[in-house]
Design a protein around this nucleic acid. Structure first.
Length: 864
RNA sequence: GCCCGGAUGGCGGAACUGGUAGACGCGCCGGACUCAAAAUCCGGUGGUGGUGACACCGUGUGGGUUCGAUUCCCUCUCCGGGCACCA
């Protein structure tokens, strides 16, 4: 055996063995339990970053662990290859997005291979490949047929200088990121998918999804946002415009406290009032120009303007003034809200600002209302007061009574509303899957025939920032109408890239099928047993995938409605961002590797300086590693210097995988050192020749103690990987075992047998995490089989037994002594032993013992 | 702003079901080996007081429940993720 650990040779050898044996090519075998382990596929941004390494190492550890536990494991990999960054790169370098994307894929695939992941590359798929995206188009046509896909107008960000639609990410402080022009909103026709039709099902199914983290289920439930309340009609007669304004409320019990109503800028009443009121028209224009992003909308100053119109309160018949509010959304409910300042914080602030009356109508026992300042309890449920016929009613009774009265008047009924909106999938962008419809002068919008799929996206265009290049590509545009055969033009909008990622996990079962989207192999492999990905996908991607699976289920292609049986959400890997924001033009981001932090000795001020030019850069805090913020850390340097095993070990040891991790490579040396120590321990052991078979019956105390620790370690690692998914503590326990082995006096034959077993366990237990070095060490330890095919060891229960245990003794909850008792000692014996301890006696002193609490096997607490 | 998380030594973290706070690792300090350095090995390492055995304090803030709280409840602060066209 070689004395020195040389990762490059060891890793090349192990990877060569796995490739040659085709260890990771999965085949369907109904006789065996399958385990489909899937990590979220990457966007091919150029290079892997530590977030990828973390994600794929978690998946790899679980895959290898399950494989050793007898499962037929499938772990595939693919590329989420459509999207905006390729267009940006194209603009910057003049290279077509296709070339840039495929070059990136080639490089990142090399990187993934160098990390030794147990991936089945025979199933690799790429979403920008027509063999993949034709099925997006095929399923879209099915959705059109079923009415799940439909057209309506939607609002987009419009850059008036570049004459192009901008993504939210490309709008910075309301301006286009390249031009700096004030962004306008435009309403254009788009395709939507009716995810809201599945809202109830998507919500209800969450309860049964015990394999998903609680926090993700909560986030999805809140996102879907079911609320039950009453739809209330406020009739109006504004001269030429008569009708009923509808507002939804979850607090119908406060209806007698309505002192105003507010409508969205797009509401018909607002438009009507604006005709005779230029100031109002200007305000409405201002609202319409405002942010389209919810976060900005919610933080902007709440503004309003009276319309001069009034609606009639459906119960009191009083006139209620109507305002236009910049915080009222046309897209939620019906674009109007009833204002109850006394019991809604936002309405309260609005009323204070514009001097509208505040009229309390709910009483909470023991509380006194003050009109001066808001208090959170004002929004609590209570008993109706100042509410005429409803006085004295509690929330539920008031709701029923008011809904019934409104029903009789034809001005309201109970209603359920959802926060969830339909999914707009049209993108005015080149690098995406073409929407398979054509526009014909005589037939209108016509779906492409199945036989004419796929609608191929040209792969040689270079966007220049001035809109979708498909609009200028006659070869793509010109076609004939599937209906009348006449001249027609293709749709140039492409699909949201979330469409691509909403079903790729199904396609891995049969990525080679050119005739159908899915086939019978899906029945064997799906649902995914373990899905692993970043918490940032907790809502959108995972919800869309659940929706898509339901649609495919209803087409009969799969027999289930939930795609992911178990979900593991890894924490983000964060790094600081550095940037410069010029007066004009784009923000420039600098990689932290190129930035030096200087700390002023006197002021302790931290200054970040770009190494290249020695001048200052701004820090934007610590955020997720991403291409767009240029704060990713390339793992390649780590792999090159220390090897893949060290990179994997370090990433897994740094923190529990579910937790956010602020990147730092301090400690990499420790991971490398540990592998070297393991190598050395095996080398020293093997140097004195083979060990005798273990004779369990004739061991001395020291030998039994080491054996106990070895099997405790095995039990802990098995539990930590298999159940807890805390790989950091699994590694720590093997480190402890190795520390004991290193200290163990290696002399007699039985000593060597016990050490052999301990090293076998250490190597096997670590193999899912550091598969290369353990592959080599397993052979060196004298085994003739390959470790990858070795079954996971079982714990020897007899090895764990002990005759005495240590108990902790507390006096009034403070640790005062440790005592040793027989393992089978009862509570009384433990109590006696505890009270007899000298230090315990000292702290008890003359005081009377009031109570003694004994926790069997753990502690005794003496209360005085 | 709203929804979901998080905060423990100089640093990453451990303590799994309310029961020994700081496992394991990094860093640092001291020592061995070396002409020297690196690598490696041995020992120490939360703070304060004490020669010492020990004692007191200590898990973001303030409060509560309990024999006992890093763990449960309430309050606040700060940090991260998401907010529908980044993926």
């Amino acid at each position: 055996m070689q004395e020195r650990y040389e990762p490059s040779a060891v890793e090349a050898d192990a990877q060569h063995y796995w490739d040659e044996q085709r260890c990771f090519e999965a085949t369907e075998d109904p006789a065996r339990d399958k385990y489909y382990c899937l990590s979220m596929f990457p966007y091919p941004s150029g290079r892997l970053h530590m977030g990828h390494v973390r994600n794929y190492t978690i998946g790899d550890v679980l895959s290898r662990f399950m494989r050793m536990n007898g499962k037929n494991v499938l772990q595939p990999m693919g590329w989420d290859a459509f999207g905006l960054p390729a267009e940006n790169a194209a603009m910057a370098n003049g290279v077509p997005p296709a070339k840039w994307t495929f070059d990136n894929i080639a490089h990142m695939k090399t990187q993934l291979k160098s990390l030794g992941f147990a991936l089945d590359w025979s199933r690799e798929l790429t979403t920008c490949d027509p063999k993949y995206y034709r099925w997006n188009q095929w399923l879209f046509l099915r959705m059109l047929e079923k009415g799940i896909a439909y057209q309506k107008t939607g609002v987009v960000n419009w850059d008036p200088v570049d004459k192009t639609v901008l993504a939210n990410e490309q709008v910075i402080d309301g301006r286009g990121w390249r031009t700096g022009a004030l962004v306008e909103k435009r309403e254009i026709p788009m395709y939507y998918l009716k995810i809201t039709a599945y809202a109830e099902d998507l919500l209800r199914a969450l309860d049964g999804m015990q394999g998903w983290p609680e926090r993700v289920r909560t986030m999805q439930a809140n996102w879907i946002g079911k609320s039950q309340g009453v739809r209330i009609g406020f009739p109006y007669d504004a001269g030429s415009l008569k009708g009923v304004m509808h507002a939804f409320t979850t607090r119908p019990d406060t209806i007698m406290g309505v002192t105003f109503c507010a409508v969205a800028a797009e509401h018909p009443l607002a438009a009507h009032a604006a005709r005779a009121n230029p100031a109002l028209a200007a305000f409405i224009e201002e609202c319409k120009r405002g942010p389209a992003i919810e976060a900005e909308l919610a933080t902007q100053e709440k503004k309003g303007m009276p319309t001069g119109l009034a609606v009639r309160h459906p119960i009191t018949q009083d006139a209620v003034p109507v305002w236009v509010g910049n915080y009222v959304l046309m897209s939620y409910g019906e674009g109007a809200v009833m204002g109850v300042p006394a019991h809604d914080e936002r309405d309260f602030e609005f009323a204070k600002k514009y001097h509208l009356p505040i009229s309390p109508v709910i009483e909470v026992p023991g509380r006194a209302y003050s009109l001066d300042a808001w208090a959170p309890w004002y929004a609590d449920h209570g008993r109706c007061i100042n509410s005429g016929p409803y006085d004295g009613l509690e929330f539920d009774a008031a709701l029923d009574a008011i809904a019934a009265d409104l029903g009789k008047l034809g001005l309201g009924e109970k209603q359920t509303t959802w926060r969830l909106r339909d999914w707009g999938i049209s993108r005015q962008r080149y690098w995406g899957c073409p929407i398979p419809v054509v526009h014909c002068a005589s037939c209108g919008t016509v779906p492409v025939r199945d036989a004419d799929l796929p609608v191929l996206l040209p792969d040689d265009l270079v966007p220049d920032g001035s809109g979708n290049p498909l609009l200028k590509d006659e070869k793509f545009l010109v076609t004939s109408c599937p209906g009348c055969g006449g001249a027609a033009r293709r749709e140039t909008d492409t699909m949201d890239t979330f469409v691509d990622s909403s079903w790729y996990f199904l396609r891995f079962a049969c990525s080679d099928n050119g005739q159908a989207m899915l086939d019978e192999r899906v029945r064997y492999w799906l649902p995914v047993d373990q899905y692993i990905g970043g918490i940032e996908h907790a809502i959108l991607h995972l919800l869309y995938a659940r929706f898509w699976t339901r649609v495919v289920n209803e087409l009969g292609a799969v027999g289930f409605r939930e795609p992911f049986a178990n979900l593991f959400t890894q924490g983000m890997v964060l790094n600081e961002v550095f940037f410069r924001k010029p007066d004009a033009g784009r923000i420039e981001y600098f990689n932290p590797a190129d930035v030096e932090i200087r700390v002023d000795k006197d002021t302790a001020q931290r200054v970040a300086v770009l190494r290249a030019d020695g001048t200052e850069v701004e820090s934007g805090g610590v955020v997720t590693m991403s291409k767009s913020k240029n704060n990713g850390v390339d793992p390649q340097a780590l792999v090159d210097e220390f090897g893949a095993d060290t990179a994997r070990l370090f990433t897994m040891f740094a923190a529990p995988p579910e937790q956010t991790l602020e990147w730092s490579d301090e400690g990499v040396q420790g991971a490398y050192r540990f592998i070297k120590r393991l190598w050395k321990a095996v080398h020293e052991h093997v140097a004195s020749g083979p060990a005798d078979p273990l004779d369990k019956g004739s061991l001395n105390d020291a030998q039994r103690a080491l054996r106990r620790q070895a099997h405790q370690t095995l039990a802990k690692v098995t539990d930590d990987i298999g159940r807890r998914r805390t790989f950091n503590t699994a590694i720590a326990s093997v480190m402890e075992l190795l520390n004991s082995v290193a200290k163990y006096p290696q002399s007699s034959a039985p000593d060597r047998s016990v050490i052999q077993e301990a090293l076998d366990i250490a190597v096997l237990a670590l193999s899912p995490i550091v598969p290369h070095v353990t592959h080599a060490l397993w052979r060196e330890l004298g085994h003739t089989t390959a470790l990858i095919d070795e079954p996971w060891m079982s714990v020897d229960a007899a090895a764990l037994q002990t005759s005495t245990i240590e108990l902790v003794v507390q006096v009034n909850g403070k640790l005062r002594a440790r005592i040793c008792v027989a393992a089978d000692a009862d509570d009384g014996a433990a109590r006696e032993a505890a009270l007899a301890d000298p230090n315990v006696r000292k702290f008890v002193g003359a005081a009377a013992v009031r109570k003694v609490i004994v926790v069997p096997g753990k502690l005794v607490n003496v209360v005085v």
